[in-house]
């Protein structure tokens, strides 16, 4: 699967838990953040092919990183809640694939959540930042 196809499937899976008004961004998207209160950036920042026989079916390992941002009127609690909802949605999820990879599965492991809000920045600009990282496997 290509990174855009992976992102499409993963964002589609997370959309039900992302509140209305939260912008979802992919690599290359441009957003003027001034009017935005909350946004989430979805990245596939690593794809690797495990060592395998040449005759074996190809699979890939990947890392999905989601950066959740928020600023007033969104509160720190609001951004951490967004991150938590996405974490629960992704934890050990198995996604059934359609289209080019119909019949295949996208499997996710256990995510890690980190609060990267810097107090000085938060006080000055009011920017909250949570990061969610999860690895997964998908058809090659």
């Amino acid at each position: 699967m290509t990174p855009p196809a992976l992102l499409h499937a993963l964002i589609h899976h997370c959309r039900p838990v992302i509140p209305d008004g939260t912008t979802i961004l992919q690599p290359g998207d441009a957003l003027t953040i001034t009017p935005s209160a909350a946004w989430a950036e979805f990245w596939i920042d690593r794809i690797s092919t495990p060592i395998a026989r040449r005759v074996a079916s190809v699979s890939i390992d990947f890392n999905l990183t989601i950066n959740c941002f928020g600023r007033p009127p969104t509160s720190s609690h609001g951004v951490s809640q967004l991150a938590e909802q996405i974490r629960l949605r992704l934890c050990q999820a198995t996604l059934t694939l359609s289209g080019d990879h119909a019949g295949g599965y996208l499997k996710l492991a256990e995510p890690e959540c980190r609060d990267l809000s810097r107090p000085a920045t938060a006080k000055a600009v009011g920017l909250w930042h949570w990061l969610i990282a999860v690895r997964g496997t998908a058809p090659g």
Binding site: I51, A52, R53, R54, V55, A56, S57
Partner: peptide
């Protein structure tokens, strides 16, 4: 990466299983 393991039984023609998930 260059190997492939196949298991066959004693029938004629044999039942064949290609071990596609072997660890090498």
């Amino acid at each position: 990466r260059d190997g492939e393991l196949v298991i066959k039984d004693g029938a004629n023609p044999p039942l064949v299983l290609t071990v596609v998930l072997d660890e090498g």
